[in-house]
Design a protein around this nucleic acid. Structure first.
Length: 198
DNA sequence: CCCATTTGACCCTT
DNA sequence: AAGGGTCAAATGGG
């Protein structure tokens, strides 16, 4: 139950407010994709703009809502929400929703890129770092085994899975960003996450 | 001043 | 009605 990849084929609830009730079944199947890490994933390569924050009933922590900083300019509909889902060993779940069409150039063939060992990273408009963080795995994951968690969006079994998360994450990031050392992220989050102070 | 975050109201779905 | 997601005015920092 980790990288819960599943689609929400219900015509973007967010935009539904404009066209009243056009829902039902559009072809707007948003992918949803979560990623857990011991620290908030503040800098995942995209520029985000926070647009909301809410207290979630199930959790004692708040959930923050971000959308692509270029959403306006490039009409990008990528969003993410981030929430601390556990305390003791703190775990933050970042859920990505939608795709970054603002960076569609590097998106062409993620698998191909990786296979060829070529660079799939562009720093053009990013003042931060690598683009395309976790998105490229969307497609492959979809046809893998989604049978694990479907709608079980709960946190429950996290306790014993944490270790898996950590290990897997390291490998995952290394796999996706060969140019960066695995510790790169740790380093980053170490100084720009401040759950309680500041 | 400009722009990103904050924050509560608003809206939609269940 | 409750819970979750987004808007937008106010706020604060650069």
């Amino acid at each position: 139950m980790f990288h819960g990849a599943d689609k929400a084929c219900k015509a973007t609830p967010g935009t539904a407010r404009k066209s009243s009730k056009n829902n039902s079944n559009e072809e707007e199947c948003l992918e949803q994709y979560s990623h857990d890490s011991p620290t908030p994933l503040l800098n995942d390569g995209f520029s985000w703009r926070k647009y909301g924050q809410k207290k979630i009933k199930a959790s004692s922590h708040q959930r923050c809502y971000y959308r692509c900083a270029y959403a306006k300019d490039r009409n990008c509909n990528a969003k993410k929400r981030e929430q601390q889902i556990q305390d003791s060993p703190s775990v933050y779940r970042t859920t990505y929703v939608g795709k970054h069409i603002c960076d569609v150039n590097v998106f062409s063939e993620p698998d191909d890129d990786i296979a060829n060992g070529s660079k799939m990273i562009r720093f053009d408009k990013m003042d931060q770092a690598m683009p395309d963080s976790v998105m490229p795995r969307l497609a492959p994951v979809e046809q893998q085994a989604i049978t694990i968690e479907e709608d079980t969006d709960q946190i429950m079994n996290l306790e014993f899975d944490i270790n898996e998360f950590l290990v897997d994450d390291d490998q995952l990031w290394e796999y996706q960003f060969p140019s960066f050392s695995p510790g790169f992220l740790d380093d980053l989050s170490e100084f720009d996450h401040n759950p309680f102070l500041v």
